[in-house]
Design a binder for these strands. Structure first.
Lengths: 196, 196
DNA sequence: AATGAAAGCGGACCGCAGTCCGTTTTGATC
DNA sequence: GATCAAAACGGACTGCGGTCCGCTTTCATT
Protein backbone atom coordinates (compact mmCIF):
# COMPACT_ATOMS: atom_id res chain seq x y z
CA UNK A 1 0.00 0.00 0.00
CA UNK A 2 1.38 3.30 -0.98
CA UNK A 3 -0.08 6.59 -0.05
CA UNK A 4 -3.73 5.88 0.51
CA UNK A 5 -4.55 9.34 1.75
CA UNK A 6 -2.87 11.85 -0.56
CA UNK A 7 -0.25 13.73 1.43
CA UNK A 8 0.04 16.80 -0.74
CA UNK A 9 -1.35 17.82 -4.10
CA UNK A 10 1.34 16.17 -6.16
CA UNK A 11 1.23 17.34 -9.78
CA UNK A 12 -0.31 14.04 -10.85
CA UNK A 13 1.97 11.45 -12.44
CA UNK A 14 1.66 10.78 -16.16
CA UNK A 15 0.49 7.51 -17.57
CA UNK A 16 2.84 5.61 -19.89
CA UNK A 17 0.79 6.09 -23.06
CA UNK A 18 0.28 9.74 -22.23
CA UNK A 19 4.01 10.37 -21.95
CA UNK A 20 4.69 8.46 -25.16
CA UNK A 21 2.13 10.52 -27.04
CA UNK A 22 3.38 13.83 -25.69
CA UNK A 23 6.84 12.97 -27.02
CA UNK A 24 5.48 11.92 -30.41
CA UNK A 25 3.43 15.09 -30.71
CA UNK A 26 6.28 17.35 -29.71
CA UNK A 27 8.66 15.66 -32.13
CA UNK A 28 6.15 15.90 -34.97
CA UNK A 29 5.42 19.55 -34.24
CA UNK A 30 9.10 20.44 -34.04
CA UNK A 31 9.80 18.74 -37.34
CA UNK A 32 6.82 20.30 -39.09
CA UNK A 33 7.63 23.78 -37.82
CA UNK A 34 11.17 23.41 -39.04
CA UNK A 35 10.28 22.15 -42.50
CA UNK A 36 7.07 24.04 -43.32
CA UNK A 37 7.22 27.12 -41.17
CA UNK A 38 4.98 27.83 -38.23
CA UNK A 39 2.11 29.35 -40.16
CA UNK A 40 1.62 26.28 -42.33
CA UNK A 41 1.39 23.85 -39.46
CA UNK A 42 -2.17 22.84 -38.62
CA UNK A 43 -3.25 20.86 -35.61
CA UNK A 44 -4.73 18.16 -37.85
CA UNK A 45 -1.42 17.75 -39.61
CA UNK A 46 0.52 17.49 -36.36
CA UNK A 47 -1.98 14.93 -35.10
CA UNK A 48 -1.77 12.74 -38.17
CA UNK A 49 2.03 12.95 -38.39
CA UNK A 50 2.33 12.13 -34.72
CA UNK A 51 -0.08 9.25 -35.26
CA UNK A 52 -2.56 10.32 -32.61
CA UNK A 53 -6.07 11.72 -32.56
CA UNK A 54 -6.75 15.42 -32.51
CA UNK A 55 -8.30 15.24 -29.08
CA UNK A 56 -5.02 13.98 -27.68
CA UNK A 57 -3.20 17.04 -28.94
CA UNK A 58 -5.56 19.35 -27.19
CA UNK A 59 -5.61 17.40 -23.95
CA UNK A 60 -1.81 17.48 -23.78
CA UNK A 61 -1.20 21.03 -24.94
CA UNK A 62 -4.45 22.86 -24.31
CA UNK A 63 -4.39 24.80 -27.58
CA UNK A 64 -2.39 25.49 -30.69
CA UNK A 65 -0.77 28.31 -28.77
CA UNK A 66 0.21 25.93 -26.02
CA UNK A 67 1.74 23.46 -28.44
CA UNK A 68 3.77 26.18 -30.11
CA UNK A 69 4.88 27.37 -26.70
CA UNK A 70 6.15 23.88 -25.96
CA UNK A 71 8.05 23.84 -29.26
CA UNK A 72 9.48 27.26 -28.55
CA UNK A 73 10.60 26.28 -25.07
CA UNK A 74 13.03 23.86 -26.66
CA UNK A 75 15.23 26.78 -27.74
CA UNK A 76 14.11 29.24 -25.11
CA UNK A 77 15.38 27.08 -22.29
CA UNK A 78 18.89 27.00 -23.67
CA UNK A 79 18.83 30.76 -24.17
CA UNK A 80 17.88 31.22 -20.55
CA UNK A 81 20.67 28.86 -19.57
CA UNK A 82 23.22 30.92 -21.47
CA UNK A 83 21.98 34.02 -19.66
CA UNK A 84 22.28 32.38 -16.28
CA UNK A 85 25.48 30.45 -16.72
CA UNK A 86 26.90 31.03 -20.18
CA UNK A 87 30.02 32.99 -21.13
CA UNK A 88 30.19 36.75 -20.60
CA UNK A 89 29.05 39.31 -21.45
CA UNK A 90 25.63 37.64 -21.63
CA UNK A 91 26.42 35.27 -18.81
CA UNK A 92 27.96 36.17 -15.45
CA UNK A 93 31.46 37.61 -15.27
CA UNK A 94 31.08 40.90 -17.12
CA UNK A 95 30.19 44.23 -15.47
CA UNK A 96 26.44 44.70 -14.98
CA UNK A 97 26.04 47.39 -17.61
CA UNK A 98 27.71 45.25 -20.25
CA UNK A 99 25.57 42.33 -19.26
CA UNK A 100 22.43 44.41 -19.45
CA UNK A 101 23.23 45.67 -22.93
CA UNK A 102 24.23 42.20 -24.08
CA UNK A 103 20.99 40.86 -22.67
CA UNK A 104 18.91 43.36 -24.59
CA UNK A 105 20.75 42.76 -27.85
CA UNK A 106 20.47 39.02 -27.49
CA UNK A 107 16.80 39.16 -26.64
CA UNK A 108 16.12 41.46 -29.55
CA UNK A 109 17.89 39.26 -32.08
CA UNK A 110 16.25 36.15 -30.72
CA UNK A 111 12.84 37.78 -30.95
CA UNK A 112 13.47 38.71 -34.56
CA UNK A 113 14.77 35.27 -35.47
CA UNK A 114 11.96 33.32 -33.86
CA UNK A 115 9.38 36.00 -34.49
CA UNK A 116 6.77 33.85 -36.18
CA UNK A 117 7.01 31.10 -33.59
CA UNK A 118 6.90 33.50 -30.68
CA UNK A 119 3.82 35.18 -32.06
CA UNK A 120 2.16 31.81 -32.58
CA UNK A 121 2.96 30.89 -29.00
CA UNK A 122 1.98 34.19 -27.42
CA UNK A 123 -1.69 34.99 -27.22
CA UNK A 124 -3.81 36.58 -24.55
CA UNK A 125 -2.55 35.64 -21.12
CA UNK A 126 -0.69 32.56 -22.26
CA UNK A 127 1.05 30.76 -19.46
CA UNK A 128 4.20 30.66 -21.52
CA UNK A 129 4.50 34.40 -22.02
CA UNK A 130 3.97 34.94 -18.32
CA UNK A 131 6.88 32.68 -17.48
CA UNK A 132 9.15 34.13 -20.15
CA UNK A 133 8.37 37.69 -19.15
CA UNK A 134 8.86 36.83 -15.53
CA UNK A 135 12.34 35.46 -16.17
CA UNK A 136 13.37 38.55 -18.13
CA UNK A 137 12.03 40.94 -15.50
CA UNK A 138 13.80 39.03 -12.78
CA UNK A 139 17.11 39.20 -14.58
CA UNK A 140 16.92 42.86 -15.54
CA UNK A 141 15.83 43.80 -12.04
CA UNK A 142 18.85 41.96 -10.67
CA UNK A 143 21.20 43.83 -12.99
CA UNK A 144 19.58 47.18 -12.19
CA UNK A 145 20.10 46.50 -8.51
CA UNK A 146 23.76 45.76 -9.14
CA UNK A 147 23.93 49.05 -10.99
CA UNK A 148 22.67 50.82 -7.87
CA UNK A 149 19.57 52.07 -9.63
CA UNK A 150 16.93 53.26 -7.19
CA UNK A 151 13.17 53.28 -7.62
CA UNK A 152 10.53 50.73 -8.53
CA UNK A 153 12.88 48.26 -10.20
CA UNK A 154 10.14 45.90 -11.36
CA UNK A 155 8.38 48.68 -13.21
CA UNK A 156 11.61 50.00 -14.64
CA UNK A 157 12.50 46.51 -15.82
CA UNK A 158 9.17 46.15 -17.57
CA UNK A 159 9.65 49.53 -19.20
CA UNK A 160 13.11 48.58 -20.41
CA UNK A 161 11.87 45.27 -21.77
CA UNK A 162 8.76 46.58 -23.50
CA UNK A 163 10.56 48.03 -26.56
CA UNK A 164 12.16 44.63 -27.19
CA UNK A 165 8.78 43.02 -27.83
CA UNK A 166 8.52 41.47 -31.31
CA UNK A 167 5.43 43.41 -32.21
CA UNK A 168 7.17 46.66 -31.37
CA UNK A 169 10.32 45.67 -33.22
CA UNK A 170 8.42 44.55 -36.30
CA UNK A 171 6.43 47.76 -36.37
CA UNK A 172 9.70 49.65 -36.59
CA UNK A 173 11.07 47.34 -39.26
CA UNK A 174 7.94 48.01 -41.31
CA UNK A 175 8.83 51.69 -41.04
CA UNK A 176 12.24 50.84 -42.51
CA UNK A 177 14.17 51.43 -39.32
CA UNK A 178 17.21 49.13 -39.44
CA UNK A 179 17.92 46.77 -36.58
CA UNK A 180 21.17 48.48 -35.71
CA UNK A 181 19.41 51.75 -35.16
CA UNK A 182 16.77 50.11 -33.01
CA UNK A 183 19.55 48.57 -30.99
CA UNK A 184 21.35 51.88 -30.57
CA UNK A 185 18.10 53.51 -29.53
CA UNK A 186 17.54 50.88 -26.89
CA UNK A 187 21.06 51.32 -25.56
CA UNK A 188 20.39 55.02 -25.23
CA UNK A 189 17.17 54.32 -23.35
CA UNK A 190 18.95 52.00 -20.93
CA UNK A 191 21.66 54.53 -20.21
CA UNK A 192 19.08 57.21 -19.48
CA UNK A 193 17.16 54.92 -17.15
CA UNK A 194 20.27 53.73 -15.36
CA UNK A 195 21.50 57.28 -15.20
CA UNK A 196 24.98 56.56 -16.46
CA UNK B 1 -18.17 64.60 -70.39
CA UNK B 2 -16.19 64.61 -67.21
CA UNK B 3 -12.66 63.52 -66.92
CA UNK B 4 -12.18 61.03 -69.70
CA UNK B 5 -8.52 60.48 -69.16
CA UNK B 6 -7.91 60.05 -65.45
CA UNK B 7 -5.76 62.95 -64.28
CA UNK B 8 -4.42 61.38 -61.13
CA UNK B 9 -5.01 58.11 -59.35
CA UNK B 10 -8.02 59.29 -57.40
CA UNK B 11 -8.94 56.90 -54.60
CA UNK B 12 -11.84 55.60 -56.65
CA UNK B 13 -15.31 56.97 -55.86
CA UNK B 14 -17.77 54.73 -54.08
CA UNK B 15 -20.96 53.51 -55.60
CA UNK B 16 -24.22 54.45 -53.91
CA UNK B 17 -25.09 50.95 -52.75
CA UNK B 18 -21.57 50.43 -51.51
CA UNK B 19 -21.69 53.54 -49.35
CA UNK B 20 -25.12 52.61 -48.02
CA UNK B 21 -23.94 49.15 -47.05
CA UNK B 22 -20.77 50.40 -45.39
CA UNK B 23 -22.91 52.62 -43.17
CA UNK B 24 -25.34 49.81 -42.35
CA UNK B 25 -22.51 47.45 -41.49
CA UNK B 26 -20.70 49.96 -39.33
CA UNK B 27 -23.91 50.84 -37.46
CA UNK B 28 -24.72 47.18 -36.89
CA UNK B 29 -21.22 46.38 -35.70
CA UNK B 30 -21.13 49.35 -33.34
CA UNK B 31 -24.46 48.39 -31.83
CA UNK B 32 -23.51 44.72 -31.46
CA UNK B 33 -20.17 45.50 -29.90
CA UNK B 34 -21.86 47.79 -27.42
CA UNK B 35 -24.56 45.35 -26.43
CA UNK B 36 -22.84 41.97 -26.58
CA UNK B 37 -19.19 42.77 -26.11
CA UNK B 38 -16.55 42.45 -28.81
CA UNK B 39 -15.76 38.80 -28.28
CA UNK B 40 -19.33 37.68 -28.91
CA UNK B 41 -19.71 39.49 -32.20
CA UNK B 42 -19.34 37.24 -35.21
CA UNK B 43 -19.10 38.34 -38.80
CA UNK B 44 -22.21 36.32 -39.68
CA UNK B 45 -24.18 38.14 -37.02
CA UNK B 46 -23.03 41.55 -38.16
CA UNK B 47 -23.92 40.63 -41.73
CA UNK B 48 -27.41 39.46 -40.91
CA UNK B 49 -28.14 42.40 -38.61
CA UNK B 50 -26.87 44.82 -41.23
CA UNK B 51 -28.99 43.01 -43.79
CA UNK B 52 -26.16 42.28 -46.20
CA UNK B 53 -24.28 39.20 -47.33
CA UNK B 54 -21.12 38.07 -45.65
CA UNK B 55 -19.06 38.73 -48.76
CA UNK B 56 -20.01 42.39 -48.59
CA UNK B 57 -18.59 42.69 -45.09
CA UNK B 58 -15.26 41.35 -46.18
CA UNK B 59 -15.08 43.39 -49.34
CA UNK B 60 -15.71 46.60 -47.37
CA UNK B 61 -13.56 45.88 -44.33
CA UNK B 62 -11.07 43.25 -45.43
CA UNK B 63 -11.28 41.20 -42.24
CA UNK B 64 -12.84 41.01 -38.82
CA UNK B 65 -9.84 42.92 -37.58
CA UNK B 66 -10.48 45.65 -40.13
CA UNK B 67 -14.11 45.95 -39.16
CA UNK B 68 -13.23 46.24 -35.49
CA UNK B 69 -10.64 48.84 -36.37
CA UNK B 70 -13.34 50.86 -38.10
CA UNK B 71 -15.54 50.58 -35.04
CA UNK B 72 -12.68 51.59 -32.78
CA UNK B 73 -11.83 54.60 -34.91
CA UNK B 74 -15.17 56.09 -33.96
CA UNK B 75 -13.85 56.79 -30.45
CA UNK B 76 -10.17 56.95 -31.32
CA UNK B 77 -10.68 59.91 -33.62
CA UNK B 78 -12.24 61.99 -30.89
CA UNK B 79 -9.45 61.06 -28.51
CA UNK B 80 -6.90 62.25 -31.03
CA UNK B 81 -8.90 65.43 -31.45
CA UNK B 82 -8.78 66.11 -27.72
CA UNK B 83 -5.03 65.63 -27.79
CA UNK B 84 -4.58 68.03 -30.67
CA UNK B 85 -7.07 70.70 -29.74
CA UNK B 86 -8.78 69.79 -26.47
CA UNK B 87 -8.36 71.49 -23.09
CA UNK B 88 -5.03 71.30 -21.23
CA UNK B 89 -3.16 69.52 -19.87
CA UNK B 90 -3.91 66.90 -22.53
CA UNK B 91 -4.47 69.49 -25.20
CA UNK B 92 -2.25 72.48 -25.98
CA UNK B 93 -1.72 75.18 -23.39
CA UNK B 94 0.03 73.31 -20.59
CA UNK B 95 3.82 72.99 -20.25
CA UNK B 96 5.26 70.12 -22.33
CA UNK B 97 6.10 67.90 -19.39
CA UNK B 98 2.59 68.13 -18.02
CA UNK B 99 1.20 67.43 -21.44
CA UNK B 100 3.45 64.42 -21.85
CA UNK B 101 2.41 62.92 -18.53
CA UNK B 102 -1.25 63.66 -19.21
CA UNK B 103 -0.87 62.03 -22.61
CA UNK B 104 0.54 58.85 -21.12
CA UNK B 105 -2.11 58.62 -18.42
CA UNK B 106 -4.90 59.22 -20.89
CA UNK B 107 -3.53 56.68 -23.34
CA UNK B 108 -3.10 54.12 -20.61
CA UNK B 109 -6.63 54.51 -19.27
CA UNK B 110 -8.06 54.44 -22.77
CA UNK B 111 -6.16 51.27 -23.56
CA UNK B 112 -7.49 49.60 -20.44
CA UNK B 113 -11.06 50.72 -21.09
CA UNK B 114 -11.17 49.66 -24.71
CA UNK B 115 -8.78 46.76 -24.23
CA UNK B 116 -10.92 44.06 -25.77
CA UNK B 117 -11.80 46.14 -28.81
CA UNK B 118 -8.24 47.28 -29.34
CA UNK B 119 -6.99 43.72 -29.21
CA UNK B 120 -9.67 42.64 -31.67
CA UNK B 121 -8.62 45.44 -34.00
CA UNK B 122 -4.88 44.97 -33.67
CA UNK B 123 -3.34 41.98 -35.33
CA UNK B 124 -0.15 41.48 -37.26
CA UNK B 125 0.68 44.58 -39.23
CA UNK B 126 -2.84 45.96 -39.24
CA UNK B 127 -3.15 49.24 -41.08
CA UNK B 128 -5.01 50.68 -38.12
CA UNK B 129 -2.30 50.03 -35.56
CA UNK B 130 0.27 51.57 -37.87
CA UNK B 131 -1.74 54.78 -38.07
CA UNK B 132 -2.49 54.90 -34.36
CA UNK B 133 1.11 54.24 -33.41
CA UNK B 134 2.28 56.80 -35.90
CA UNK B 135 0.09 59.49 -34.39
CA UNK B 136 1.31 58.75 -30.88
CA UNK B 137 4.96 58.73 -31.90
CA UNK B 138 4.52 62.01 -33.74
CA UNK B 139 2.98 63.65 -30.72
CA UNK B 140 5.48 62.38 -28.17
CA UNK B 141 8.36 63.29 -30.43
CA UNK B 142 6.98 66.80 -30.68
CA UNK B 143 6.74 67.12 -26.89
CA UNK B 144 10.23 65.72 -26.40
CA UNK B 145 11.57 68.30 -28.81
CA UNK B 146 9.86 71.06 -26.84
CA UNK B 147 11.49 69.62 -23.74
CA UNK B 148 14.89 70.05 -25.39
CA UNK B 149 15.59 66.35 -25.28
CA UNK B 150 18.45 65.37 -27.57
CA UNK B 151 19.04 62.08 -29.32
CA UNK B 152 17.02 59.83 -31.61
CA UNK B 153 13.62 61.21 -30.68
CA UNK B 154 11.66 58.72 -32.75
CA UNK B 155 13.28 55.79 -31.00
CA UNK B 156 12.89 57.41 -27.60
CA UNK B 157 9.23 58.04 -28.33
CA UNK B 158 8.69 54.42 -29.25
CA UNK B 159 10.47 53.35 -26.08
CA UNK B 160 8.31 55.63 -23.98
CA UNK B 161 5.13 54.41 -25.64
CA UNK B 162 5.90 50.69 -25.51
CA UNK B 163 5.05 50.20 -21.83
CA UNK B 164 1.61 51.70 -22.43
CA UNK B 165 0.65 48.86 -24.76
CA UNK B 166 -2.44 46.95 -23.60
CA UNK B 167 -0.69 43.62 -23.62
CA UNK B 168 2.04 44.99 -21.38
CA UNK B 169 -0.43 46.68 -19.07
CA UNK B 170 -2.61 43.59 -18.80
CA UNK B 171 0.39 41.41 -18.04
CA UNK B 172 1.11 43.65 -15.06
CA UNK B 173 -2.49 43.64 -13.95
CA UNK B 174 -2.42 39.85 -13.98
CA UNK B 175 0.54 40.12 -11.60
CA UNK B 176 -1.67 42.20 -9.32
CA UNK B 177 0.12 45.46 -9.95
CA UNK B 178 -2.45 48.22 -9.51
CA UNK B 179 -2.99 50.78 -12.24
CA UNK B 180 -1.80 53.65 -10.07
CA UNK B 181 1.54 51.98 -9.52
CA UNK B 182 1.90 51.31 -13.24
CA UNK B 183 1.18 54.94 -13.87
CA UNK B 184 3.72 56.12 -11.29
CA UNK B 185 6.31 53.79 -12.79
CA UNK B 186 5.70 55.23 -16.21
CA UNK B 187 6.04 58.78 -14.90
CA UNK B 188 9.36 57.80 -13.40
CA UNK B 189 10.49 56.35 -16.72
CA UNK B 190 9.55 59.53 -18.57
CA UNK B 191 11.41 61.73 -16.11
CA UNK B 192 14.53 59.61 -16.50
CA UNK B 193 14.34 59.73 -20.27
CA UNK B 194 13.69 63.44 -20.37
CA UNK B 195 16.40 63.95 -17.81
CA UNK B 196 14.37 66.22 -15.53
C1' DA C 1 -3.93 -13.56 -13.38
C1' DA C 2 -8.28 -11.25 -12.65
C1' DT C 3 -10.59 -6.89 -11.82
C1' DG C 4 -12.40 -2.42 -12.06
C1' DA C 5 -12.27 2.41 -12.08
C1' DA C 6 -9.78 6.34 -13.51
C1' DA C 7 -7.11 8.23 -17.11
C1' DG C 8 -6.48 8.51 -21.76
C1' DC C 9 -7.85 8.13 -26.59
C1' DG C 10 -9.70 9.50 -31.26
C1' DG C 11 -12.46 11.19 -34.69
C1' DA C 12 -17.04 13.00 -35.69
C1' DC C 13 -18.81 17.34 -34.96
C1' DC C 14 -19.37 22.56 -34.24
C1' DG C 15 -18.65 27.59 -34.93
C1' DC C 16 -16.36 31.01 -37.16
C1' DA C 17 -13.21 33.63 -40.38
C1' DG C 18 -12.43 34.11 -44.90
C1' DT C 19 -13.02 32.85 -50.19
C1' DC C 20 -15.39 32.11 -54.65
C1' DC C 21 -18.24 32.87 -58.30
C1' DG C 22 -22.73 33.21 -60.66
C1' DT C 23 -26.19 36.97 -60.35
C1' DT C 24 -27.70 41.79 -59.68
C1' DT C 25 -27.14 46.80 -59.39
C1' DT C 26 -25.28 51.04 -60.82
C1' DG C 27 -24.46 54.91 -63.59
C1' DA C 28 -21.88 56.77 -67.58
C1' DT C 29 -22.84 57.05 -72.50
C1' DC C 30 -25.61 57.49 -76.44
C1' DG D 1 -35.03 55.43 -72.00
C1' DA D 2 -31.92 51.73 -73.81
C1' DT D 3 -27.38 49.72 -73.43
C1' DC D 4 -23.54 47.63 -71.25
C1' DA D 5 -19.27 47.03 -68.74
C1' DA D 6 -17.62 47.59 -64.30
C1' DA D 7 -18.59 47.31 -59.68
C1' DA D 8 -20.93 45.25 -56.00
C1' DC D 9 -23.65 41.62 -54.00
C1' DG D 10 -24.68 37.32 -51.27
C1' DG D 11 -24.61 32.90 -49.72
C1' DA D 12 -22.74 28.32 -50.43
C1' DC D 13 -18.31 26.48 -49.47
C1' DT D 14 -13.61 25.60 -47.37
C1' DG D 15 -10.23 25.08 -43.70
C1' DC D 16 -8.97 25.32 -39.14
C1' DG D 17 -9.17 25.58 -34.09
C1' DG D 18 -11.47 23.55 -30.50
C1' DT D 19 -15.06 20.37 -28.10
C1' DC D 20 -17.53 16.11 -26.96
C1' DC D 21 -18.35 11.58 -25.74
C1' DG D 22 -18.46 6.56 -26.34
C1' DC D 23 -14.61 3.28 -26.43
C1' DT D 24 -9.87 1.54 -24.95
C1' DT D 25 -5.74 1.32 -22.14
C1' DT D 26 -3.35 1.41 -17.94
C1' DC D 27 -2.14 -0.04 -13.48
C1' DA D 28 -2.96 -0.42 -8.36
C1' DT D 29 -5.05 -3.84 -5.81
C1' DT D 30 -6.20 -8.50 -4.62
Amino acid sequence: MTNLLPMADEPAPERADAARNRQAILAAALELVRTRGVDCVTMDTVASVAGVGKGTLFRRFESREGLMAAVLDESEAEWQASVISGPPPLGPGAPPMERLLAFGHSRMRTNVTHGALIKAATGDSSARSRAAASFAVMHVRHLLRELRVTGDLVLLSIAILAPLDIMVIEQQQRDDIPLDRIEAGWDDLVRRVVGA
